[in-house]
Design a protein around this nucleic acid. Structure first.
Lengths: 247, 247
DNA sequence: ACGGCGACCTTACCTATGTTAATGTCGGAC
DNA sequence: GTCCGACATTAACATAGGTAAGGTCGCCGT
C-alpha cells in the first residue's frame, strides 16, 4: 500500500518509525469511500473531521447563485483538508470527489492526541497546511495575471510536481482524470477555450494528454511558458539530503 | 487607542480581561512603522515573526518575472499575517505597506506563550486564520467566475465588512486608500477597465468614491450585484448576542 | 512661479476569450 | 449490434476587456 501522506511529509522533515506508525494508524480508522462526483462534505454542513485523501482526486468548489462553479483547489492522494476546521460553525464551500476516492476522517480527539505525542508530525502538518495556503495564493496570481496558455501550463506543472511528491507519477507521466469542463471551472475559462489551449500545448510538444494520462516530456520547458516558480511549494528539506529510506 | 484585533476576535468569541491584556501586551512589544509602499518583508527572506497590523493598510503581493504584479490579499487593521510562518524557510511572496502602517512583530516565543496560557485567544487566532484562508478562496472564485463589475463590487463589499468588524467604518463610509492601479493589480484588470467599472458603479448609485473615502449607500444592493454571500467571513458568534462590552 | 509627478479620467482601436451550436468519438448497457 | 450519454473538437460570430496615447488636476519641492 502506498502512503502518500508519509511520503509527502518526508519532503519536509524526517519522521521516526513511531511517527509513521501513528500516521498509518490514524489513516486506518474511519475510512470512507465516495464515487466520482459525489460530495464528501457540502456547503452549510458543520465540519466534524479533518479529511485525508488516501486514494483518488477530490476538489473544493463553490457555486454561485446563478450556477457558475469554481473549483478552488484539488486534493491529491496524501492531501489533508483544513487542519482545525472544526472551529468553524459551517462549511462555506463543498468538497467533492472527482474520481472515486478513499478518505480517512480524522476526529478532533485523534488530531489532538497526535499534536501532543508527536511534535514532528505536528510540525509537518502545519507545514503542509502552510503549503496549501501558498498554493491558494498562487492560484490567485494565476487567475489574476496569467493568460489562458500560461494558466493551463501552470496548473499542469503544479499538479505534476505535487503528484510526484506524493509518489503518484512514473517518469514524466501521471494519471490525469480531469475533464475539460473541470479544467475550465478551475481556470475560469470556457470549455471551448480549454480545448483550444490544450491543442496549442500539444502542438508545441509541451504535453501529451490522452486517455486520462498526462505526459510532460520536458517539464522545464512547460515551466518556462507558465512562468512557473516552484518555490511556493516549499518542497526542499532543510539542506539535509533526501534519502530513500521510505516506508 | 483602538484595538482592532480585539474587536475583531470578539466577533468570534468572548475574551476575558486577562486575554485582552495579553493581546495588548503582545501588540506593544516590537512595534515597527513603515512608509507607504515600503516592503514589510520581501520574497526570499526568512520569516521570523508573525506580523500584526495595528494601523493602516498593507498587502501581500507577488511579482512575475516579467513584472506583472498581483495583489493577493489585503491586511487591514487587526489583521495577522500567517500564524506559524516561521516553519517555512523563506517567504514565497512579499508584504508591502499601502498606506503608512504600524505593525507589531510577534516572536515565536511570545506566540507559544500565548498558545499555552490563553486557550481562548488560541482558538480565536485559529478562527482568524481560517477566515483568512476562506477569503483567499473567495478571491479565487472572484477572479475565476465574476466579471469586472461583479468582481469590483465584491471586493468593495468584502473590504467594507472587514473594516466594520475591525471598527474602522463610520456609518456607511470608510477610508479607502487604494489607487485604481492597485485595484487593477488586485482584480486582474487594467487601470482603464478599473476606471470604467468604478464609473459604472457610481452611475448606478452603488458607491460614492472620492478623496480616498468610500461610501456605500446601500450595502445590500451592492452585495446583490456582486453575488456576495458573507458566509465565508464567518462573522456570526455562536448564537449568543453580540454585546457592546468592548475594550 | 515653475516643473515634475502621480492619480485620475477619457477616447479609439484591437484581441483574447466567450457563446452557440453542430459534429465526432468512444465505451457501456441492453 | 445499436443506442445513448459523456466528452472532445471545430467553426462562425460576439464581446468584455486590454493597449496606447493623451489630457487634466492637485501637490510637492525649489
Amino acid at each position: 500500500m502506498r502512503r502518500p501522506l508519509i511520503r509527502k511529509l518526508e519532503k519536509f522533515t524526517r519522521l521516526s518509525q513511531a511517527d509513521k506508525e501513528m500516521l498509518v494508524r490514524i489513516a486506518a480508522q474511519r475510512v470512507r469511500r465516495f464515487a466520482a462526483r459525489e460530495d464528501i462534505i457540502h456547503e452549510g454542513e458543520k465540519p466534524e473531521f479533518i479529511n485525508l485523501i488516501n486514494e483518488g482526486w477530490a476538489c473544493r468548489y463553490k457555486t454561485l447563485e446563478d450556477g457558475r462553479r469554481q473549483i478552488i483547489a484539488f486534493f491529491l492522494p496524501g492531501d489533508l483538508c483544513d487542519l482545525n476546521v472544526f472551529i468553524l460553525k459551517e462549511m462555506d464551500h463543498s468538497i467533492g470527489a472527482i474520481t472515486p476516492v478513499s478518505v480517512s476522517e480524522i476526529s478532533r480527539a485523534a488530531f489532538d492526541e497526535m499534536m501532543i505525542g508527536h511534535p514532528r508530525i505536528t510540525q509537518a502538518l502545519w507545514w503542509e497546511s502552510l503549503v496549501a495556503a501558498a498554493i491558494q495564493r498562487e492560484w490567485t496570481v494565476n487567475l489574476g495575471q496569467r493568460d489562458a496558455l500560461e494558466r493551463m501550463a501552470h496548473l499542469l506543472c503544479e499538479l505534476f510536481i505535487r503528484l510526484e511528491a506524493a509518489g503518484c507519477t512514473s517518469d514524466s507521466s501521471c494519471e490525469f482524470p480531469l475533464t475539460q469542463t473541470e479544467l475550465g471551472e478551475t481556470l475560469g475559462m470556457s470549455t471551448v477555450h480549454v480545448n483550444r489551449t490544450l491543442q496549442e500545448l500539444r502542438a508545441s510538444n509541451l504535453i501529451v494528454l490522452k486517455d486520462r494520462t498526462l505526459t510532460i516530456p520536458n517539464l522545464q520547458a512547460l515551466q518556462d511558458v507558465a512562468l512557473f516558480n516552484p518555490n511556493y511549494l516549499h518542497l526542499d528539506r532543510e539542506g539535509r539530503h533526501l534519502d530513500a529510506n521510505e516506508e
